[in-house]
Amino acid sequence: MGQAASPSLYDFAGGDPVNYFDPTGRCSQKSNSQPFTPGPFGPLPNFNDPTIGGLNPFDPNLSAMQQIIAENLQIYGPGAIATANFIAEQEAEYQFLYGWTAYNGFGQEPQTTVMQYYFGSGAQLGTGLGQLFYGNTTDGAFNTALGLLGSALTVLGADSLASPGSFGGPVSPEGNIGTVTRYVGPIEAQIANETGYIPNVDQFGVPKDVYVTPEAPVATPGEAASAYQIQTPTHVIVGDASGISFNYGGNVAGGTGIEMTTTSQIPVISVTPFAAPATPLVPPLTLVPTN
């Protein structure tokens, strides 16, 4: 694990995964954020405190979180990287990420970020995409909340950070990416309906990268066009991502969405047209009496 020909898991980050990160896989760089300090966002919450915000992510009564055992959690400032050390290993990944979805409600403006998490044994290393939420909460007792949207959940394999050129490299099939979303025009919608697949070749039969997002479908074509910097779509396809390897493409340039690519055919789960814009009501005719 770690980079090829290297015994260290953390070489990608200069041996210091807390303060350095390597989003491109080419060279590590200093995190652009400082460790979280008390200030506008309030004190660093103690996530082991079962009273925080009225919810405890490690509450054994919450079934999805039962196996989570946090040894140490460090949260950095807005836009930064969160790291967490766990006693539990691979099987805890999903529970950890899922657990934080409980805090979505506390967030204000979501900010897409990359989460890196390290396991206490040093034997496992993973990376997830998520949404970092911060800001004041409604009850004032939980000033910083970290949330991951389940639909945006991506877990990378332990070896994947060694892949140069793209952050994370191939996403492991066990990455809990249940579905992917793809915005399309009427032609691709028709093809998807007819074949049951998102085509992975162009019209000349040449293999291509198929761009999708792990994020849930947005509500309007305008939102999709803006988030993914594409022409306005007419349909949204939800695809079955199980067993398919993806390359994480990061944030869309100029947009807010996250994109991933695969060269595989993605089975179609659903093809849904965006709702047509509401037709303006025609004002009632006014009858004018004639003489």
Binding site: R182, G185, I187, E188, Q203
Partner: peptide, 13 residues
């Protein structure tokens, strides 16, 4: 013309 058509058909690619 062909490329524009391909791009319009497969918006994300």
């Amino acid at each position: 013309a062909v490329f524009d058509e391909e791009r319009s058909a497969f918006l994300m690619d």
